[in-house]
Design a binder for these strands. Structure first.
Lengths: 202, 202
DNA sequence: CGGTTCTCCTAACATAATTAGGAGACTCGT
DNA sequence: ACGAGTCTCCTAATTATGTTAGGAGAACCG
């Protein structure tokens, strides 16, 4: 007589516990390294025994996959918050700084999203789609400031991820490489400007 | 009455078996991924049971360490084979191409030497020393063609490893990024040339 | 030939992922 | 309030892997 319930309390609780497990997994991965994550530790942190986690995630890989998807969503959100001034070089610096900032603020997340180092982990099609969406947004933004063409984009990708990678690998928490970011963007901008001019020539 | 034997056949055989195990480990790592290496598989390939490997290596980490040291020696050798013409830009391209070639010809070795992705692996002091020697040689070569200064070297490192990383991660076996190497070196060279000129000014 | 060393083995243990199956708590319609 | 169904979490057991302990047999050496 009361009709359909508005909320599914059971499902809500289930999702809540899932989120709790995911958060615990992040904490442990940040402390023990992405590959050092164990279900035993995750279970202990949320007050369960390891097999109980299987009610929430089908496997350890599914936990990685959920972390991957969550990281991708955060990346997408970060991209959407970057504005644009119309000055190509200035915008380029802002975009690059946003990317590097996102990566260095959580190296574990960076490792999961952009380095493929977990033994057999391949993101599920669903999670991968979110990832592609984030990169597409980035590409769109760069196109918006005049940076198009596969080669130009590839070169930019290499420079920015190169700086990021060196920073995280060899000076975590420091700024030895990221302080070169503006300079690197000036170098890159000068280069593609020259190339576009040459392309316009006879 | 016969004096000291010239050769220690036992030690030679022991070293030979060690080398054989190491080679088997490389093959398995290349096929199953660096993290997918198991002593079980290594033992099986050399016709032993897993515990027998412990007569040759103290642990799985020791196997990784020996692989690391071997890779570093190969790197050092590669560095020593690079010549110099006196033309800074041309030499820069040769050095960079040599480095990227070394990395892409064996991505597993690259992962072990330049990306730190094995759970708890830290190279031993002895292996690390070989690694430092190789990087020192590289630095010396770059100094020889006029590239000095921490920031210039760091920027170059970022650009070259960035291209290498993208190549290996996103287009293994292809040339999507490494074909941009000469262009990237021109970009970098133009940049540091300009900077040095500016530094000379008022 | 006898003792030493070397090589490899089996047995056993710890940790970790995973599966099977069950006990108790919660939910919902009646 | 009660009973069926579901949900949550548990214990027990299996498998894979790294590792240690200890021993049997072959190789070597005087």
């Amino acid at each position: 007589m009361l009709g359909e319930p508005i909320r599914d309390r059971k499902a809500e609780r289930h999702e809540g516990t899932k989120a709790e497990i995911l958060e615990a997994a992040w904490e442990i991965a940040r402390a023990a390294g992405l590959a050092g994550l164990t279900l035993r530790d995750v279970a202990h942190r949320v007050g369960m025994r390891p097999p109980s986690l299987y009610s929430y995630f089908a496997s350890k890989e599914a936990v990685y996959d959920a972390m991957f998807a969550q990281g991708c969503r955060e990346f997408l959100k970060e991209q959407e918050e970057v504005g644009s001034t119309g000055d190509t070089l200035a915008d380029l610096k802002v975009i690059a700084r946003s990317f590097v900032g996102f990566c260095t603020e959580d190296p574990t997340r960076y490792q999961l999203l952009f380095q493929r180092t977990i033994p057999g982990f391949e993101p599920s099609a669903e999670a991968f789609a979110i990832s592609v969406k984030g990169l597409e947004e980035l590409r769109r933004m760069l196109a918006g400031i005049g940076i198009t063409g596969q080669e130009s984009l590839d070169l930019l990708t290499a420079v920015v991820t190169g700086l990021t990678d060196q920073q995280i690998s060899n000076d975590p928490g420091g700024d030895r490489w990221i302080r070169l970011l503006d300079e690197a963007m000036e170098m890159y901008f000068a280069h593609i400007s020259k190339r576009m001019k040459a392309g316009d020539g006879p």
